[in-house]
Design a protein around this nucleic acid. Structure first.
Lengths: 112, 112
DNA sequence: GTCAATTCTAACTTTTTTGTAAGTACCTTA
DNA sequence: TAAGGTACTTACAAAAAAGTTAGAATTGAC
């Protein structure tokens, strides 16, 4: 009979939590992903959906999401401009995380 | 036939993502929860498991987690001191979130 | 000709977060 | 008597994140 050993997985460069957070830990990142979901959203729609974000932060985060290949951006050459954002395949794979976040929030924090 | 409507759930005080993130969005918060898991961990063990965190940040986060009732702290009146941290019932409910974070990281970011 | 709509961009400031370094307390062991 | 182990605490400084404000581009509507 062994004593129950504690599996210590030290937080180094192979830590999956660290890796995921490096993409997702921005203040607004998960919120934006949540809003886009499996739909298409325009810049202005996102702005209205997240009323407290500043324009600067919104595009800054969107640019970062595009750089990290979580979000795809499609700009139509129209006037006034139209730009659509949607999750990439990779981005869609983060949705289970957001779902759990939603579940936890609903069941434990918002029981109003 | 209706057009497929976009369900916009604006990010306000009832947003479950926002509520969850208000507890979990600290730089080290989810990492600490991940390390504790369903075990007991002492302060020093956590420090070694997360080598890059400063002592200040570690106890600051731990205090915050205790305040928010995600973590329980038990100090033994011994010399040298011994302090144990473990997740509360509420804290344990965040584990599915962390699990998804782990899964996403392993499958998409660490395929080394 | 002026204004509105939409998607940004840039400069600057403020706030928040994080890090650093040193110190405290207490007992045990050498 | 001095050093070591453990879990903090505090003050100060640096760095990172976020906010504010203003403005650019383009074309159609009034």
């Amino acid at each position: 009979m062994e004593k129950k050993e504690k599996k210590i997985l030290p937080c180094d460069d192979n830590c999956p939590v660290k890796a995921s957070l490096s993409l997702l830990s921005g203040k607004w990142t998960m919120m934006i992903i949540f809003q886009i979901g499996d739909d298409v959203m325009r810049y202005g729609e996102l702005k209205r959906a997240i009323p407290t974000i500043s324009e600067k932060m919104l595009i800054q985060e969107l640019n970062m999401l595009v750089e990290n290949k979580l979000v795809n951006k499609k700009a139509y050459p129209e006037i006034p401009p139209r730009v659509e954002y949607r999750l990439t395949e990779l981005g869609l794979k983060t949705i289970p995380i957001i779902d759990k976040l939603v579940e936890f929030g609903k069941e434990n924090l918002l029981k109003s």
